[in-house]
Simulated assay, not measured.
Amino acid sequence: MPMSERNVLGLSAAGFHKIAYTQWGRDDAARTAVCVHGLTRNGRDFDRLALALADGWRVACPDVVGRGRSDWLPVPALYGYPQYCADMVALIARMGVETVDWVGTSMGGLIGMTLAAQANSPIRRMVINDVGPFIAQAGLQRIADYVGKDPVFEDLPALESYLRFILMGFGTISDECWRHMAEHSARPLPDGRFRLAYDPAIGEAFKTAPIADVDLWALWDRVRCPVLVLRGADSDLLSAETAERMAERGPGASGLVRVVEFPNTGHAPSLMTDEQIAIVRNFLAEG
C-alpha cells in the first residue's frame, strides 16, 4: 500500500511549526483514520497497524509537535493538550474529510478523548489505548522519572536496549519491532552517536507543579461515539477499576464502550502484534 511522509503547518503563540505525518493508503480511500502516539513516541510506532488498515482506510500517523520529524516549539510552556488538539484539528482539515476514526495510545488517547467530547466532533469511532479519564499519581510519577532526560547513545543497539527497558510495558513484541522503534527514535549527532528523537522540553510540564491524580471524568461523560478501550493487564496508568467505570458511564451508559485487556502487558499495548491489530481493525470496521 502507498506510504509517504508529509507535513502540515500548525500555529502556536510562537508562530508556525511543522507537523510531520506518515500517510498510508490511498488519498481517495472511503475512510480516514488518525493514529496518535504516546508522550515520548512518534507516528512510526503505528506502521504495522497502518499497513493492516491501508486497504480500506487512508491512515495518517502524525509526529506530535516536539517529537519525531516535527518541529520543536521555542517556548516549552506551549507543549500541552491545547496545542496538541489544535494541531490535530489542522491535520484533519488537511485530510479534507468530515469524519475520522481515531486510534490513540496514552497521550494520543487523551487528545482523542478531548476532541471526541466537543460538540460536532469529527471522530466517528475511537480506540483509546491504555489511558482513561482517571490517572493515578503513581503512574504519572513513573513517566516523570524518565521523560525530559536527554541521554546520549554510542550506537543504535544501545538506544534499542534503553527502549526495551523504558517501554517494557509494551509486552512481548518481535526483535524486528524493537529495531524499527530504535531506528525511528534516533536523532543522529555529528559525532556518530544518537539522542532520542524528541525535545527534552516536553517534560517541563512535570516539573512546574506537584504530580497529582488527574480526573477527566467530566470530559469522558461528553463523549458520544463508540469507543474501544484497550488495557494492559499490568498497567499502572489505566486501572481495571477505571476501565470498568468507563464501560458504565459516559458513552458506556449508552452501550457504546467495549473493554479489552491484554495479559502480560503493562503500559501500553504496542498495537504491533497480530492479535492487537486484528482487534483494532475489527472494531473500526464494524461502523
Rank of each mutant, 00 (worst) to 15 (best):
V64G: 01
R193K: 12
L39W: 02
D47T: 08
L140W: 01
G109K: 00
G203L: 08
A86P: 14
G192T: 05
V34D: 04
A240N: 14
A138F: 11
D101C: 02
G252L: 13
F262Q: 10
T99A: 04
R58A: 04
L73I: 11
M246W: 09
P200M: 08
M272F: 09
D45L: 01
V36L: 02
H37V: 01
A201D: 14
R31F: 02
F206M: 08
L39Q: 02
D63T: 04
L156Q: 08
V36T: 05
M88V: 09
H267C: 05
M272Y: 09
I135N: 02
Q23P: 04
D274R: 12
A20Y: 02
H267K: 03
H37Y: 07
D63I: 03
I111W: 04
P200Y: 00
Q83G: 10
V97F: 15
F134Q: 05
A240K: 15
V36S: 00
V100E: 04
M107E: 01
D175I: 05
V260M: 15
E5K: 12
A138C: 10
W24V: 01
D71H: 03
A20L: 06
R94Y: 00
E286N: 08
G252P: 15
A93M: 02
D71W: 02
I19K: 06
G232V: 09
I92H: 00
P251G: 09
P188N: 08
C35Y: 01
A29S: 09
A20E: 05
F170E: 09
A201N: 14
G266W: 05
M3K: 09
G148H: 15
R164E: 13
